[in-house]
Computed example of a mutant assay.
Amino acid sequence: MTQKSLLKKAQKGNEKAFVELLQHEKLKIYNMAYLYMKNENDALDVVQETVARAFASISTVKEPAYFSTWLTKICINTALESIRKKNKIIYMEQPITEIVNEPAIDEKLDLLEAIEQLDEKYKAVIILKYYQDLPVREIAQLLQCPEGTVKTNLHRAIQQLKKYVLKGGSHYGEQY
């Protein structure tokens, strides 16, 4: 069954069609939630809330081709709302580099740490562009801003990440 026909059925209240639509998106949504929440339980909570919100508002999807983008936007907004509500800070007794000694893992952790240091607007475009592999046009639609703003934010985010990596990482309060 095509995505278009599944979407039409889901919009008429067919739960099976909705579940089938989600089957194609579930891993992508979980990964997005995990990137924001940084732990499995919170990510699963965000996914659950995303699915509930998506089911409740499935009738608002106008174009089947944008179902994935629409669902991703709900996931991002749900994750950001959850972060704001919890406003939690995780303190680690020892640095991550002492816990993990494998170089490849260290590099990935360094990049994730650098991305975590970015402002939300920069973090969002980096995640959508390089983790979700979305084109600038779709990112602009998803974030409801002009394509030029997305390009500018991508450029600035990459510049900040370069500075962060070249400085060997910065700590709280330091500027890149």
Results as ranks from 00 to 15, higher is better:
residue 7 L to N: 01
residue 52 A to Y: 11
residue 60 T to M: 12
residue 37 M to D: 03
residue 163 K to N: 09
residue 58 I to N: 07
residue 148 G to Y: 02
residue 23 Q to E: 14
residue 75 C to H: 00
residue 19 V to L: 10
residue 69 T to H: 00
residue 108 K to I: 15
residue 32 M to I: 09
residue 2 T to D: 12
residue 157 A to F: 07
residue 137 R to Q: 14
residue 81 E to N: 09
residue 86 K to M: 06
residue 70 W to I: 07
residue 99 I to M: 07
residue 65 A to K: 14
residue 52 A to W: 08
residue 75 C to W: 00
residue 54 A to S: 15
residue 17 A to Y: 05
residue 123 K to L: 07
residue 83 I to A: 03
residue 73 K to F: 01
residue 54 A to C: 15
residue 52 A to M: 13
residue 151 K to R: 13
residue 106 D to H: 14
residue 129 K to Y: 08
residue 72 T to M: 01
residue 59 S to C: 06
residue 147 E to G: 00
residue 87 N to A: 02
residue 36 Y to V: 09
residue 123 K to P: 05
residue 79 A to H: 05
residue 45 D to G: 13
residue 30 Y to D: 01
residue 80 L to N: 09
residue 62 K to F: 05
residue 106 D to K: 13
residue 146 P to M: 01
residue 103 P to Q: 00
residue 106 D to C: 06
residue 68 S to E: 05
residue 91 Y to G: 05
residue 75 C to F: 01
residue 159 Q to C: 08
residue 40 E to K: 12
residue 96 I to Q: 06
residue 27 L to D: 15
residue 29 I to D: 05
residue 132 Q to L: 07
residue 14 N to M: 03
residue 124 A to M: 07
residue 46 V to W: 07
residue 151 K to M: 10
residue 119 D to W: 06
residue 20 E to H: 13
residue 73 K to Y: 04
residue 166 L to D: 15
residue 174 E to T: 00
residue 131 Y to H: 13
residue 18 F to Y: 04
residue 164 Y to V: 03
residue 47 V to R: 04
residue 174 E to P: 00
residue 63 E to I: 13
residue 31 N to H: 14
residue 138 E to N: 08
residue 59 S to K: 15
residue 72 T to A: 00
residue 75 C to Y: 00
residue 50 T to L: 10
residue 71 L to S: 03
residue 9 K to Q: 12
residue 41 N to K: 15
residue 53 R to G: 14
